[in-house]
């Protein structure tokens, strides 16, 4: 079985974001980068599936500048077999349709049986790339899965709906699945596996060679949200913060007796 996992590298969401010079996205300097949280579940599910089947190949693909190879190395250390880096220094200017088109251009000839993506990226969060990729490749997609099982050639998944409800869904392969938080418990790469990952193949393709489509959406500007304000911010010494909070709770709430 051939398995594809799409991963995106995103900044740590606890970062203090500055805007880029054009004012269209965040400035990507001085940020700590990591694998998109949702994609960790995608990698883990791929590795578990391959372990269950006893054979198969897992390819991890990522679009972005050279730094995204760090996230790819983590996926390789978690158990993916090889990586395909679609190099694009301006990937933040591409819209979800283009990202999906580029991955599809690579994946079309590879005939993957199963593709896993995250349900959304933490920075742009369009929740589109997975479904669009499946559409480009003419295969089915099931989004927001929190349980995955593959038995007797059939794949059964649980989709998470609102209010705790789930839908149990069966789909034939090839198909794409977008992974929701809690699908599994992503493993931490062990030191020996990190060393092994260094020797795994990491091929670089150029975005310009793959992408023919133009963007369907563009960004006018990126800005900070308007502060709704009102809230008080307590900084400084912990003992002072405790005293101040006690006073506020006594004045503003009826919960302290």
């Amino acid at each position: 079985m051939k398995i594809l996992v799409c991963i995106k590298q995103v900044p740590d969401m606890e970062s203090r974001f500055k805007l880029n010079a054009e004012g269209t996205w965040y400035n990507d300097q001085d940020l700590a980068w990591r694998m998109n949280e949702y994609d960790e579940y995608a990698v883990e599910q791929a590795v578990q599936l391959r372990e269950q089947l006893g054979d198969g190949e897992i390819v991890v693909v990522s679009v972005g500048p050279d730094r995204v190879k760090e996230a790819m190395k983590k996926a390789l250390a978690m158990g993916a077999d090889r990586g395909v880096h679609i190099k694009d220094d301006a990937s933040h200017e591409k819209d979800p349709f283009q990202i999906a088109a580029a991955i599809a251009a690579y994946a079309a000839d590879e005939k993957f049986d199963v593709t896993f993506t995250g349900m959304q990226s933490q920075d742009r969060g369009s929740a589109q790339v997975g479904v669009l990729l499946a559409a480009h490749l003419g295969m089915q997609a099931v989004t927001t899965i929190i349980e995955f099982s593959h038995e007797g050639g059939m794949t059964t998944v649980h989709r998470e709906l609102e209010g705790g409800l789930k839908a149990v869904v069966r789909v034939p392969l090839p198909a794409l699945f977008s992974c929701q938080l809690g699908l599994n418990t992503p493993r931490y790469p062990t030191l020996p596996n990190i060393m092994k990952a260094k020797k795994k193949e990491l091929l670089t393709l150029q975005m310009a060679d793959l992408l023919k489509a133009s963007a369907l959406t563009t960004t006018d500007e990126t800005r900070y949200p308007e502060k709704r304000g009102g809230g008080l911010v307590l900084e400084g010494d912990v003992a002072d913060q405790v005293s101040q909070l006690m006073t506020i709770l006594k004045e503003k709430t009826a919960v302290l007796k």
Binding site: R124, A215, T217, Y224
Partner: peptide, 29 residues
């Protein structure tokens, strides 16, 4: 073109959150 998770609109463009709501993006199809 699709614009996801719209929270507001302004002059034919859509406002959407980014980076766990730390930023707002104004997107046009």
């Amino acid at each position: 073109g699709q614009v996801s998770e719209v929270v507001d609109c302004q002059e034919g463009a859509m406002v959407v959150p980014a980076c766990n709501s730390k930023l707002r993006r104004v997107v046009r199809s």
